[in-house]
Amino acid sequence: MISPDADLLLEIVDLHARVEDQPILKGVNLRIRAGEIHAVMGRNGSGKSTLSKVLAGHPAYTVTGGSVRFRGADLLDLDPEQRARIGLFLGFQYPVEIPGVSNLEFLRVATNARRGELGREELDTFAFEDVVRERLTVVQMDPAFLERSVNEGFSGGEKKRNEILQMALLEPVVAILDETDSGLDIDALRIVAGGVNQLATAENATLLITHYQRLLDVITPDFVHVMAAGRILRTGGKELALELEERGYDWVDQELAVLEAV
């Protein structure tokens, strides 16, 4: 599916960011084209989750240098909601519980925000129910979850399914999935991964943030990036993930030590 001529969707150049006074990202470079699936792997603290949050516009992080272009436009200039509307999606590692807000209403308001950007008409409650019921099948989710409060009392697997359901409704251009495999048993992992695979097309792209190879057994990446100390240390094909699985992350530390000694 990958082609060097495909549209460049996301271009990250020398991105630096900090949280409070702590620099986390120290020069990230990444180019993602339409039709590609990328995986960013790395140890805890390597900066991979920070990368996802900075891209989504989390207010706790401050960009201190570099640029991010989303289909040519300056992404960092936009509010989080504007980024979402133009088609950037972040699947949360820990989806947030919102008591008292019905999941169905939340999904409808979010879907309509994206539809407005795409120039499509808003869906009323009835029309939306039809759409959402059809999309539920992507993640084999029980309709009963629509009536509950957003993520409240959902199990880990249910929360992740709800994330992929949102992705299915919002039809993002670039989906960043932060540790989507964490906390999932093998059946839930297959369902969630199946959803992601169904939603991947030649027009969009997926960026998987993960610690483990096991997600990549079910979603095959075109590119694997290894992140350490706030940078992408090495980029390769899916075999790089297997190498990591086999050799662990120690060799990354060694490479990093060499790099930092220079």
Partner: peptide, 24 residues
């Protein structure tokens, strides 16, 4: 932030959260 990351503007997000708070 969760609501904003789904394309919901800050004012609407605040309204949804207030509603949720009251609804209980």
């Amino acid at each position: 932030f969760y609501l904003q990351s789904r394309g919901i503007d800050a004012a609407t997000a605040a309204r949804l959260l207030k509603r949720g708070f009251c609804q209980e």
